[in-house]
Structures are given as C-alpha cells and as structure tokens.
C-alpha cells in the first residue's frame, strides 16, 4: 500500500535532517551575533558608534531569522501555517495601536505567543521572526528585532510545552520571565542599531536613566527590563484568556496541544 501514488511514504529522514541543520544554524547565527555584540562593545557606544557592529548585528540577526524560517516553515502543517498570517496581522495591528498611544508597552507579540501555545516552540520562533520581517514592510525600524521576536516565540512555546498554561496564574509568571530574556536580548540591538528607542514613552524612560548618569547601553537595558517583563506578562495573560475561550474542537486539532496536554481541564469548555 505504501507504493500507492495517492499516499505519502513514511516521512523522509534526509529532508528532516537538513531542516534541523537550518534551524540550528539559524539559532547559532543569532546567538553568535549576540555574544559578539556584548563582547565587542568596550569602546563606549556614544563615543563615535562603530557602524561595523551595527551592520554585523543587522546581518547576523537577519540571517539567523531567515535560516530559522527556512528550516521551520516547510515542516509546519497547513492547518498551522494558515494561522501564521492571522497571528501576524494581530501582532501588527495591536503593535501599531499601542505604539501610537503613550503607553510604555508594545503588545506586539500576542499573535506570536498564540501560535507558540497552539503549535509549539519551533512554530512560535518562526512566527516571531516572520512577524519582524513582515511588519518591517510597513515599519522598517522593527526589522532588527526579528531575532528577539523569534526568541519570545520560542520561549512561549517552551512555557506551553512544560504546562505553564495549565494554571491561569502561571501564564503571567512565564511571561514575566520571558520578558526578562527578551529585554536583555533586545537592548543591545536598540543601542547599536538606533542609539535609542523608537517610541516617545520608552525614550522618556531611557533619558531618565541617562539623567541619573547611566551609560547608554545600561540605560536602554534598564528601560527594557522595566517594559518587557510587564509587557510579556500582559501578553501571556491575554493569550491564556484567548485559548481558554476557544472551542475545544478547535484547540484539540493541534497535535502539540494534545501531545503535551498544554491546556488544563479535559471536560470544561
């Protein structure tokens, strides 16, 4: 029966290995770029910013994001794939809306975290990276943060995988921790590529730290640590609310949810 032309053979091993390789290369590229940036910033940022580091940061993160996408996307089942555009639209719409207000949050990762909870860390990371790339078609300043968005998607997927969405009060905690990672990760990007933040509210926080005598990088990092954990705690709670409001037949069609019992309550609707 496996010789039938109407059916698929058992999954190809070689193709799978190539994809894994792409994922690992992507992750490694992002990690190496980050390490380089952190080590290579002894010359004070503000003392004539090194444009080489900027380009390296941009290209390293972008390359990593693209490799991740190329590795993950072909393995995503169509039923998950069609959700990614929906998630990106949610990200962009909420992100633009919040960005236009004077709130020092972003809320631009609701869609990414939603996909991560429904379909796992790999799909979450790819969605985050894609979100940065697609959004940059409207707002190019978010492009360098694509790698950071991928990290958020990945961590959210891990949180779901290990049951942190089974209890409602654990979701914001997981979000808070994710936010710490995300903040520490994205601060050097903001510093090296833009020399600051892109919003007025976040800019005000940075200047407050600068006024207290901090260096630019540490001011931006502190700002990120103020904004990001709260932001992600809110986002994770919103997503928890959403997934528990969905009909069970909808959530149960995702193998990731079934296999790792991501959501609590087998009988509640």
């Amino acid at each position: 029966m496996s010789s039938s032309s109407l059916t698929l053979p058992a999954s190809g091993q070689a193709a799978g290995r190539n994809r894994r390789l792409l994922e690992i290369l992507g992750g490694a590229s992002i990690a190496a770029t980050y390490v380089y940036l952190v080590l290579a910033q002894p010359t004070d940022l503000t003392n004539g910013l090194s444009s080489g580091s900027t380009l390296l940061a941009l290209s390293g993160f972008l390359l990593g994001a693209v490799l991740l996408i190329a590795g993950v996307l072909p393995t995503v089942p169509t039923s998950t794939l069609v959700l990614i555009p929906v998630a990106l639209v949610l990200n962009i719409v909420l992100g633009q809306f919040i960005g236009s207000t004077l709130v020092p949050f972003y809320l631009d990762s609701v869609g990414t975290v939603l996909i991560a909870v429904l379909a796992g860390p790999a799909a979450g990371a790819a969605t985050g990276a894609l979100s940065g790339i697609v959004w940059s078609l409207f707002n190019p300043t978010v492009l360098p943060f694509a790698a950071g968005a991928a990290l958020i998607g990945f961590l959210a997927g891990l949180a779901a995988r290990y049951g942190l969405f089974r209890r409602f009060y654990l979701a914001p905690v997981a979000g808070f921790v994710t936010g710490i990672f995300a903040g520490v990760f994205s601060a050097p990007i903001a510093a090296f590529v833009y020399g600051g933040t892109s919003g007025i509210a976040t800019g005000a926080v940075v200047s407050a730290f600068r006024a207290m005598g901090d260096s630019l990088l540490s001011a931006i990092t502190k700002q990120a640590l103020l904004s990001d954990p709260m932001d992600k705690a809110i986002v994770f709670s919103v997503v928890a609310l959403l997934v528990y409001a969905l009909p069970r037949r909808t959530t149960l069609q995702f193998p990731f949810i079934r296999r790792h019992r991501v959501l609590a309550g087998a009988k509640t609707s």
Binding site: M1, S2, S4, S5, L6, T7, L8
Partner: peptide
C-alpha cells in the same frame, strides 16, 4: 476506491495510509 487503487483505513491504528493531497486532488 479511487483511480483504480484501493485505500483501507482501519480506525485508530497507526498503520493507516496518509493521503497525499497533492496527488489526491487530481482525482
């Protein structure tokens, strides 16, 4: 029974054929 082939699905067992939609839709 499709296009001269016959496919048998037997409940929840794991040996069920996996339909290749890219070929299926030609029939």
């Amino acid at each position: 029974e499709v296009a001269g082939e016959s496919l048998v699905f037997s409940g929840a067992s794991s040996v069920n054929p996996r339909i290749n939609p890219a070929v299926w839709n030609r029939h």
